[in-house]
Simulated scan of single mutants.
Amino acid sequence: MLPKLPKGLTRHWPIYLPLMLLGALLTPLALRSYVETTTYSRRYTNINQVPVKPVAIVFGAGVWEDGTPMPMLADRIQGAIDLYHLGRVQKILMTGDNATPEYNEVIAMQNYAEQQGVPLKDIRLDYAGFSTYESCYRAKEIFGVQQAILITQEYHLPRAVYTCSQLGINAVGYGRPDWGKYQDESMRFYTQREMLAIIKALLEVHILRPKPTFLGPFEGMGNG
């Protein structure tokens, strides 16, 4: 038999329930605000203000069936290409999903950058970047990245900068456009999902610290 609730709690339940619901709604907003505030000074949208770093990290974001990058991913890669040609980075780490032979984000990213003049010697591939956390973890532990410019859409950038920073990378972010460039319906979905992803990220970096799906031997980037 389940224990009975105290009479006082039962009597005031109509008051407690709305407060609990309000707390459940406000907590994700508060955590998102915390991550955005603590990374604000390290996020840029103007390429001319992005500080020089040895490495750019580009996060995967989906490829079409023909193996070419989807628009968001193409935009991220273009940001890295522009930084490279401006001399603000010397190398680019492409990190993404290659969980099956048929799906390979990082080769698509490499091909896109190579076609626009980035030599293969300055591109490194992380085939096991299955999440932002795993990409940041592997960037530090496998590729030895100590300083980096992270490139992704603005809605995702606070979490990326926060995660990599907490995992030991001196990271800044270059945010690519999202709202106003992509459909509002899509952006509402990504933005709402991001609030849950921030809660997961805070648990990962502050409490759980899980190992990535794959680690492997140290590869290094050559610099940075």
Rank of each mutant, 00 (worst) to 15 (best):
I107V: 06
Q115D: 09
L125E: 08
T132H: 10
F143V: 08
Q115S: 10
Q116T: 01
V106P: 01
R124M: 06
I107Q: 13
L125R: 10
A113L: 05
L120N: 09
V106Y: 03
T132R: 08
Q110V: 00
L125G: 13
T132E: 05
A128P: 01
A139C: 05
Y112I: 08
K121W: 14
C136M: 13
I107T: 11
A113R: 08
N111W: 02
Y133E: 11
Y127G: 03
Q116F: 02
L125F: 00
P119C: 10
L125N: 11
N104C: 04
P119F: 15
V106Q: 12
G117Y: 06
K140R: 15
G129K: 08
A128N: 10
N111K: 13
E105A: 05
Y112S: 07
L120F: 14
L120C: 00
Q116L: 05
R124K: 14
D122R: 11
M109E: 02
I142R: 15
Y133N: 11
M109S: 04
A139T: 06
N111H: 08
R138D: 02
A108C: 05
S135A: 09
I142S: 05
A108P: 04
N111F: 00
Y137L: 08
G117K: 04
E114L: 07
V118Q: 09
G129I: 07
V106H: 09
G117N: 02
E134D: 14
